[in-house]
Amino acid sequence: MSLLSLIFDALLGLGLLWLAWRAVSSPGLFASVVLFMVFGFVMAITWARLGAPDLALAEAAISAGLTGALLLSACKAALTDTGNDNELPDEPSTVRRRWPAALICTGLGAVLSIVMIQVAANRAAVPPALAEAVTTHPLDNPITVMLLDLRGYDTLLEVTVLLTAFLGVRILLEQTELPRLHAPRATTPLMVDPLLAMATPVLLMTALYLFWTGMEAPGGAFQAGALLGALGVMYTLTGRFEPLDRTPVLLRLGLILGPGMFAIFACLALTWSEWPLAYPAGATGAAAVAIEFTLMISIAVTLTLLFSATPGLHARHMGVRHP
């Protein structure tokens, strides 16, 4: 058994290294992007192997899924922005400084690996105060406890970073006329309607389940928001959401809802406690569900807009199809 797990770990590690090497060394942009997406999925398996299912879910949905979609859309941008329709221009494969870089990186990799092995070989126990705070907390999933309560500041600032990234993108879009990447088509392919009809309820149900179960089991606002963002990506790609040059009020509310409510909650906490972000005694569960829900909405809206790389989107009226 232990031999099998050793082989499995070694294969995972070698797979990660090989994929990373191919991703940074392939001459073609498209090949590198696809290899990087596969790298993300192998990373998700690694998280599951290391006993971190929350991370496996987040990695699969965010790193491999949505980052992959962003990178593929960047490949498309490399075509449309240069007015080149079918041939991706290969970036020059390598540049000067290849051998010095290889020397430095080999040395660094060796030193880092030795240090990491030594650090990781020391057993460290979870600090007793932390272990007690997690086990006596009203919420059951330790990750959610940390995200929403014990390290709430991190989460508040993290969603602020996500919002800031969108604001930065929006400012850049004001500066220059970039060609639209996902222009709606005149006709939709035959299989798009059935695909969306199946994918929409499945993704909605899975996202709400992950959100709800995040209180006691792996899942939570980030994984659920990423899935809803993936749904938004599908709607953008199939022309169900049309790009806009302004951000509609409803989307602005969606963008600000999570960070805004979290920040208001942080201030309100000063009325019942002496610390910001402290939960009211007896109402932790309800407050956490409310905050997680608003975070999920904001994460979904922000990720969809980051993918579409437009200031706003609106639902396109598909006309009356049903008799």
Binding site: G13, V95, I104, C105, V111, M116, I117
Partner: peptide, 29 residues
């Protein structure tokens, strides 16, 4: 066993990422 294997992987991955950043001219790479 995973601790040893994955610490080694982490150190080497970091070096590979840095190598990519140092040697590629394409910004997406």
């Amino acid at each position: 066993s995973g601790i040893l294997a994955f610490s080694l992987t982490a150190g080497l991955l970091f070096a590979l990422g840095l190598y990519g950043m140092l040697t590629r001219t394409g910004l997406i790479h």
